[in-house]
Amino acid sequence: MLNPLSDPDWPDEIADLREGFAGRLNVYRTMAHHPDLLRAWSSFRNHCVLGTALTPAQSEVVILRCGLRLRSDYEWQHHIIRGRKAGLSDARILSLCGALSGMAAEDAVLAAAVDELFTDSRLTQPLYDRVVALAGQKGLLDVMATVAHYTLLGFILNSFGVPLDEDIAAALRDAPLDGARPADGQ
């Protein structure tokens, strides 16, 4: 098992990343066992998180549906908090655990795209067209990039049992989301 690296164990060659995003989250502290991978990953991560053509709410819908499909409690719980910050209500977040028919129309398009990518590794033309109509051509590519990004993170999280970051655990203790969890979904 790979545990998140502590500050004293952090590799010197990526010392600059510890003070940024990588040092704040256990998933990246785990990835730091492979400094070259984390360094290469950082640009892609920054695009998917900070430079995406998706709105913050659209991005969180995609990420939450990925967390559900991956059965990643870590990702799901992190993005409950981030989804709320992006303006998603708890009811909207919970709807992402269910059937597409129970979601807002925009969320259903994005969740269907996540589902098709997980199931078929591609989008059918009708769904492709719906995503482009909703988010544009760049948004379509960013849906795919976001799914790819969070899929790798889900593999790391699920394979190594990465512990939830304490700030997220505390926020969820203070304001829990009652309802489904990734293990209950898809």
Rank of each mutant, 00 (worst) to 15 (best):
M1E: 10
L2R: 12
P4W: 01
S6A: 14
D7N: 09
D9I: 01
D12A: 15
E13D: 15
E13H: 05
I14F: 02
A15C: 02
D16M: 07
D16I: 04
D16S: 14
D16E: 15
D16P: 06
E19S: 14
A22T: 00
A22F: 00
G23L: 05
R24L: 15
V27M: 11
V27Y: 01
V27Q: 04
R29T: 00
M31F: 14
P35Y: 08
D36W: 05
D36C: 01
L37N: 02
L38F: 05
R39S: 10
A40M: 08
A40T: 08
A40F: 03
W41P: 00
S42M: 15
S43N: 13
F44D: 07
R45Q: 12
H47F: 13
H47G: 06
T52N: 07
T55P: 00
A57Q: 08
A57V: 07
Q58S: 04
S59P: 00
I63V: 14
L64C: 06
G67E: 06
R69L: 10
R69M: 13
L70F: 08
L70C: 10
R71C: 04
R71S: 13
R71L: 08
R71E: 13
D73I: 05
E75H: 03
H78M: 08
H79M: 04
I81P: 00
I81A: 06
K85T: 08
K85W: 02
L88N: 00
S89M: 01
S89E: 05
S89G: 10
A91W: 02
A91H: 10
L94Y: 02
C97A: 15
C97P: 02
G98I: 00
A99I: 02
A99C: 06
L100T: 08
G102V: 07
G102K: 13
M103I: 03
A105N: 12
A105K: 12
D107A: 10
A108P: 08
A108C: 11
V109C: 11
V109L: 10
L110Q: 01
L110T: 02
A111S: 14
A113D: 05
V114D: 01
V114E: 01
D115R: 05
L117M: 15
T119F: 03
D120C: 12
S121T: 12
S121L: 11
R122C: 08
P126I: 11
L127N: 10
L127S: 13
L127Y: 09
R130M: 00
R130Y: 04
V131Q: 09
V132M: 08
A133P: 00
A133G: 15
L134G: 09
A135D: 06
A135T: 14
Q137L: 15
K138L: 09
G139M: 05
G139D: 05
L140N: 05
L141F: 11
A148G: 15
A148D: 02
H149K: 02
H149C: 06
Y150W: 10
Y150V: 05
T151K: 07
T151C: 12
L152A: 09
L152V: 12
G154S: 10
L157R: 00
S159K: 04
G161V: 08
V162P: 01
V162Q: 02
V162H: 04
P163R: 09
L164G: 01
D165F: 07
E166H: 12
D167T: 11
A170E: 15
A171S: 15
A171I: 10
L172C: 06
R173Y: 03
D174P: 06
D174H: 12
D174V: 11
A175R: 14
L177P: 02
G179H: 10
A180R: 14
R181H: 11
A183C: 12
D184V: 07
D184S: 13
